[in-house]
Design a protein around this nucleic acid. Structure first.
Lengths: 359, 359
DNA sequence: CTGTTAGCGCATTCAA
DNA sequence: TTGAATGCGCTAACAG
């Protein structure tokens, strides 16, 4: 006979209590490893629990407790609007398993709350009190109100994005503005006067910070800031190609910053080609990348490394402690972007020297 | 003032009721989109719900209902014992998001239940009534008792592995025995008499089925079955190298089936090299792979494709319907393995012809 | 060391 | 169309 289910469903704490001849509270004490139970009693109860494979009903338990052994993961917008690359999502999955899962916690993904007709709130799992910690992965709109409510709820949470309008937001990310400054400054120092920029993430801090860093570098070097050179893009190939084409068709534009981090070399090449320019010859490109060593374009004059994953990994460590009540929030991790003017090979240096400005 | 939280925490159904001047039951009706509420009442209640951002407490709800909007994912054994490749785990993640997540369901990963001292049961999330469906990803032991309890619980579930001792188990997988038969038969027909086999997954159906298929092919062709040629391995490189070395050191062994699916060409090469044999020249190898087109070894005489992911994908579609009560279980998806004797190029055929048996 | 009582927030049952 | 009462399984507070 299967003793692991009763007539009316799973065993409850009362069934165990009856079987063991003790009260429900005593069973509760055993289950939760509280003190104040005689060793003999504890063993008797434990053996029954074992025998019938009793597990407490989490829902019922959650009615009396506030902490959960679940960490939630969600996206601040539909992926169609604010894309998260499969690479990043994949990294997230393994990283969260490493930090939370390995401790025996449940990792709960709610990646499509927008799929439902009546729920658009990406933090719904938190309001429904499913989990007691939340990872918000992706780019937040500046006017996102959900994250503020998450913050005010006092729950451990972490975003991968800062917000100008909400600086106290718990986040682990990179200094985009400085990255944009470094990139622009570098190109200006190489003699460029009119530099195009592919700027993704409209109406967001990461988007705005790109323009700010760009403008600040121009100002610092006494170069006129032309906003039409900063071109908003989505991460879709056609859009990128078109933006590159438009920017680079202007012969006075001699350099291009691809600040998308999409590593979409094909689209950049195609846009440059359509404009009749030659990469690394009469047009220099500086692509951004999330990978330490990646060379997005061989012809690139330099790469900007955005150590976002590294920042998030550190953030997760903090979040896990916060989640366990062994640390406090909010999380403030901000890594600097690194400009790499060589992709690792000396031959690359030569290429740079060969470069001729065409103005 | 923030209306989204009360003094004592989140709003409850009663707070909404009080605010709207109705009973809790009416609010419940609105929340769950039940009929029997006047349109005016419904709108009034709904607007308050919207205003204060009320979400029902899942735990409380779960006390009264049996279905959950969560699908659980777990592993039948610690990864150290029964490894699941990152590739497969990654695929799983995206696939489950596609099938379940896209419908707005929560996808709950419990990949390390073994990390806890007092819980070793990989289906714990089910017993705790967190989710109403479970994906068991990985290789089951023949004497696994948990899966039987899951089965008896009547819950939608799916494994990626059959069990000889439990044929009614809900699974979507591949016919390993036939795959082993096909592989062995193919090599025998090529003139091989003594064929080594690297056999992973001890004490499991997939493990046993490999030996059975191998032995059956020998019997069918009147070749003596020598059990010492079927070599149990783990997926660790050192183990694979050693097993290959031992098998191939026997000069009467002229062919090798790598039935691990690990696509670990480096280890196979190394083992062959250490034994002083030459791949494709005086030793033929037939590797198994989970990828449709992958060529594990250029020198391979053939590949066996295990369409496991394809089978699981179909299984997930069924599971999702079962989960939604639009279909019944158990799931019975069994795909055939495909032997590919050319890796797509004609040059390969030539290589095969060149092959010389050295007995 | 152990038990009793109460109530968490919700949905079901039954009544109005 | 609406509401009151009840209890799901558990734990906190208190009592013994």
């Amino acid at each position: 006979m299967d003793k692991t289910t009763r007539e009316n469903g799973p065993w409850t704490i009362h069934d165990i209590a009856r079987e063991a001849g003790v009260s429900a509270k005593t069973v509760s004490r055993v289950v939760n490893q509280e003190r104040g139970v005689a060793e003999a009693t504890r063993r008797r109860v434990a053996s029954i629990i074992e025998e019938v494979a009793y597990f407490p009903h989490t829902g019922a338990r959650s009615l009396r407790t506030t902490t959960r052994d679940c960490i939630g993961v969600t996206l601040p917008a539909p992926r169609t609007r604010v894309p998260l690359s499969p690479t990043m999502l994949n990294w997230l999955f393994f990283e969260l398993d490493r930090v939370f899962g390995s401790k025996g916690d449940f990792v709960v993904f709610d990646l499509n709350p927008y799929a439902l007709t009546n729920h658009h709130d990406y933090a719904r799992g938190l309001w429904e009190q499913r989990y007691s910690g939340l990872v918000i992965a992706g780019v937040l709109d500046e006017d996102d109100s959900v994250v503020r409510r998450v913050h005010n709820a006092g729950v451990p949470y972490m975003t991968s994005c800062r917000m100008d309008s909400f600086p106290e937001c718990s986040s682990a990310t990179i200094d985009i503005e400085e990255g944009a400054y470094l990139s622009t400054d570098y190109l200006i120092r190489r003699g460029h006067k009119r530099i195009g920029m592919l700027k993704p993430f409209k109406n967001t801090q990461p988007g705005n910070a790109r323009r700010r860093g760009y403008a600040r570098a121009c100002a610092a070097q006494g170069i006129e800031f032309d906003d039409s050179l900063v071109r908003p893009i989505t991460l879709e190939s056609a859009d990128v190609i078109n933006a590159v084409f438009r920017l680079v068709s202007d012969p006075t534009v001699t350099a291009l910053i691809d600040s998308s981090g999409a590593e979409d070399s094909a689209s950049i090449r195609e846009g440059v080609r359509r404009a009749g320019r030659i990469l690394g010859k009469n047009i220099e490109v500086l692509p951004w990348t999330y990978s330490h060593k990646a060379t997005v374009l061989n012809e690139a004059c330099a790469h900007l490394w955005l150590p976002l994953r590294e920042a998030m990994a550190e953030g997760f460590e903090h979040l896990e402690k916060w989640f366990r009540n062994e640390a406090e929030g909010p999380i403030e991790v901000l890594y600097r972007c690194i400009l790499r003017d060589t992709p690792g090979e000396d031959e690359f240096r030569e290429k740079q020297t060969v470069f001729q400005l065409i103005t």
